[in-house]
């Protein structure tokens, strides 16, 4: 009995090991195949649909109290945008900075920081969730995006808001290394979606996106574009960057980052 069992055990162990190796290699091959990546990405559409169905446009992200705020709010992504244009704005304390709002709008806008501070403000203490896994709680102050878009008067064909940013994350020949982001109009008109100029009662630091960053509280951190220079209203996303609706989306991440 003993001699029969040993080879069988060895056979099982060997079989399991080689099966495991083959499966791992197969998974890696699948991971590298664009068609299979598309297939896996179909789950994003389901998540988006279900979350929109359950929460609609109305569900609000949790707001915290001042005692919940993280002692240190981590700076991630760009810490200091390169380029002379941004450097000049920074030296002038962003007095010459203007937010351009254009695209599918009836009244294009050019707004200074003072203009934005004179609009109705909203303050919210919310949790920021990075795609990497960490979270930080901070107090944000800014202008609801809805009130800016209302002033610009969206045309009927409008479907998305695209945020053009000052920072370049990757040097590329075709300019697709420039940071940009986009959201649908449900998020754009959500009451907690604000153009923030302050964090924890102080003007945004360079690391946190001075002079203006987006807050989309029901999505992950990379959607919250920093160094916003221009908001373009559009009916399609495939004409920007590499066509997926954002810098990280162009590099494989979900456009709907509610998960």
């Amino acid at each position: 009995m003993h001699n029969v069992l040993l080879p069988r055990r060895r056979f099982l162990a060997l079989g399991a090991a080689s099966l495991g190796g083959t499966l791992l290699a197969g998974c890696d091959r699948l991971s590298g195949a664009p068609d299979f990546q598309e297939f896996l990405a179909s789950a994003e559409w389901l998540t988006y649909r279900i979350q929109r169905l359950l929460g609609g446009g109305h569900a609000l992200a949790r707001e915290f109290t001042a005692s919940d705020v993280s002692p240190v709010f981590k700076v991630n992504g760009t810490g200091m945008p390169e380029g002379e244009e941004y450097a000049a704005l920074r030296v002038g304390n962003f007095a010459d900075w203007r937010l351009r709002v254009d695209g599918l709008v009836a009244k294009p806008l050019d707004l200074s920081l003072a203009d934005l501070r004179n609009l109705p403000q909203r303050t919210q203490i919310t949790r920021h969730d990075c795609v990497e896994g960490w979270s930080a709680i901070g107090k944000w102050q800014g202008v609801p995006l809805a009130s800016v878009l209302a002033r610009a008067a969206l045309l009927p064909a409008a479907r998305f808001a695209v945020f053009h940013c000052a920072d370049v994350l990757e040097q590329t020949l075709d300019g697709t290394g420039q940071y940009y982001e986009s959201i649908d109009l449900i998020d754009a008109f959500h009451p907690q979606t604000i153009l923030a100029h302050s964090l924890d009662d102080a003007p945004l630091t360079i690391g946190h996106g001075a002079p203006l960053r987006l807050r989309v509280e029901r999505q992950l951190g990379y959607k919250h574009a920093k160094y916003v220079m221009r908001i373009e209203i559009t009916d399609r996303l495939d004409s920007f960057g590499r066509g997926k609706g954002g810098y990280w989306e162009d590099r494989g991440y979900e456009w709907y980052a509610g998960i």
């Binding site: 791992l24 998974c27 890696d28 991971s31 590298g32 990546q37 297939f39 896996l40 990405a41 179909s42 789950a43 994003e44 998540t47 795609v131 990497e132 990280w248 590099r251 494989g252 991440y253 979900e254 998960i259």
Partner: peptide, 17 residues
């Protein structure tokens, strides 16, 4: 890890599907 090389975006695609 899946995939065996470092790729958070692909890991998330596998995970959520």
């Amino acid at each position: 890890t899946l995939p065996s090389w470092r790729n958070l975006a692909l890991g998330r695609r596998w995970h959520f599907f």
